[in-house]
Design a protein around this nucleic acid. Structure first.
Lengths: 348, 348
DNA sequence: GTCACAATTTGGAACGTTCCAAATATATAT
DNA sequence: ATATATATTTGGAACGTTCCAAATTGTGAC
């Protein structure tokens, strides 16, 4: 169809102009939907455009207008469903904004992170949504972001001057803990995550607050750090189980840790939700899929992403210098792994 | 630090030239690592660059050279860990190629797919890796891709003129089926997937071939279509279980379907791997995380992604018109859900 | 037919880079 | 010193768009 164009020189606005018998300026006006151009002209131009198979050159355009329609989205671990959901939320919110996201995965590498951010800047990104890699500090953020609007998502970074979208980790962990307390648990452990992550600190803080409010002490032996992965959760739980006076319930750093922990529980011949109550954090889709289904703190991941996008857009469009901060609500979703559904209350 | 530049006009190659006392051409040479420029000059220039905080404008560059370093990556469902892994594989292979991926999620919408592809072309993408949305046909591919190198991943599309990277669905399904046959199963069902997906057809073909080779008939009642989701798998399995003469084993369209099926099995008071053997397809990370661990056909997802990227790069760099096709090997990974680990052979 | 005004259309001159042909500097041989 | 070759450097002229000020066309009133 359409006759084989051989040499394939790119079709430009000027070719269209010639074909439609107008000037390039007019074509440009048509392109930007200007109300200035007469209807009949507009039609002639659009006809010429798809006759020649024109494709708009955004690069050239943003060179001239010196602003682009690209926003960067830098994710520390796309393989993690939690961050994938976040990314999708961001994309959704960007849908009709006139901006298009540039996604990159850093795999928790600060080096790679610097590379991709640099590349995004070189491509003229108008702003950045960043889920910082594990060892990113405020100085690094400053270095990376200098000048362009940037919103940090999920991982708070002490001292960083940037907008922020996080979930209410303290309240969420507290709520999960309270729930376990109400079910009659007294010996409750916190499992997984590494000490220098702010998210970890926040969640432990919530845990501790709820424990104290219930008049319970938090012994340091009941806070078991680990990598925030399934294997980490498995190991940490195994350690906990091999010791006398094991807890009757655990609040986990996140869902993957919780799932690892449940595996360890099963490996010890115990049943999660019956012998030991487990609750996770983030409420990823996996939480629903494991068996027993995981009770988890839901943070409306997609919603956080959308919010991050909105904040970024506002910052870009209004040239706001003010830093924004949004804390998403955390709700407990009760399923089976905490034992509540069994009507069972495990006394200490 | 670095003194507040107020008006923030962008720093260009020309500013650098002035600062370093050379011409813009020289700066350009430095930028492209040309061996032509004298070492001492090069140093002066680089110094000027980070003194002024220069950031390269790739847009302008690719306008002039009329080729960009962007490749598009269009994924039908990023929330699905399988495709997320694929995406990561692609990104990894692109890492040091000088190209940077532009990722977009279509959420199985053909409309959205057309939009994002268009946007990528407007941004000058040099090529495209496309995991087509569900209802994409050859004509649509033609429309979208016309002109630029494009490789289709995972989902084959009848009649589409494009390079292709898929896993060996026929052999994989056959292998899974044989395994069940060897364990003594006679009544084996195929579960999940929808009839007009080519992937479905291929996997059913492999299933049928293996059954026939074992002298077993495939009754149509034993092929249960469903959406390729957890819920779909749950429903299809439930249907199967409520009927007399239920199968003793099921080959599932993919892992999510299998996980849904296992849920249904549990709901019926049965145990997957003991009462009914289940095998999945794709071997996503989830397969390892469920309990009982899911036996699945592994397709080296990341590897497929890398291969797709390689093919695309070759096509771009060598301007090859020839269409490439790669079929990734499919291996069975035996875990618990098929019962093999129990040493148990379920007689029919 | 002329005037004033609104509605359309239109040539350049940017935007920040690369590329080419040509200029200049440096080294080497005479 | 001169000629020759080699190593560096350098002005434009693109690339495909937008924007501005100015030109052209159309309309209605006189």
């Amino acid at each position: 169809m359409a006759g084989a164009k051989s040499a394939a020189r790119t079709v430009t606005i000027i070719d269209i102009a010639r074909e439609a018998g107008v000037s390039k300026s007019t074509v440009s006006l048509v392109l930007k939907m200007s109300p200035l151009v007469k209807d009949e002209t507009r039609q002639r131009v659009t006809k010429a455009m798809d006759a020649l198979g024109y494709v708009y050159n955004r690069g050239a355009a943003s060179l001239r207008r010196s602003r682009s329609d690209i926003v960067g989205m830098v994710i520390n671990d796309l393989a993690n469903p939690f961050f994938a959901e976040l990314a999708i939320g961001i994309e959704r919110a960007l849908q009709n904004s006139g901006f298009i996201p540039f996604v990159a995965n850093t795999a928790e590498s600060v080096v790679r992170q610097a590379e991709v951010v640099r590349s995004m800047r070189e491509h003229g990104a108008a702003g950045l949504i960043l889920c910082p890699a594990l060892d990113t500090d405020a100085a690094e953020i400053e270095r990376l972001g200098s000048g362009l609007p940037i919103v940090l998502a999920i991982r708070r970074i002490m001292g960083a001057r940037a907008s922020l979208v996080v979930s209410d980790n303290v309240a969420g962990a507290a709520r999960a803990t309270e729930h376990l307390v109400n079910l009659g648990h007294r010996d409750i452990a916190f499992l997984g995550g590494i000490g220098h992550m702010v998210v970890f600190q926040d969640r432990v803080a919530g845990f501790t607050r709820a424990m104290n409010q219930a008049g319970l002490a938090v012994q340091s032996s009941l806070i078991g750090e680990s990598m925030p992965t399934k294997d980490g959760g498995f190991d940490a739980m195994s350690r906990l189980l091999s010791v006398d006076g094991r807890p009757t319930a655990v609040v986990c750093f996140n869902d993957v840790v919780a799932i690892g922990a449940m595996l360890a529980i099963a490996r010890h011949g115990l049943v999660a939700g019956r012998d030991i109550a487990v609750v996770g954090f983030d409420d990823t889709t996996e939480a629903r899929h494991v068996s027993p289904a995981l009770t988890s703190v839901s943070v409306d991941t997609g919603g956080l992403g959308e919010r991050a996008a909105q904040i970024l857009l506002r910052q870009i469009n209004e040239g706001e210098r003010r830093l924004d901060m949004y804390t998403g609500e955390a709700m407990l979703v009760v399923r089976e792994s905490c034992g509540a559904r069994l009507g069972r209350r495990i006394a200490s």
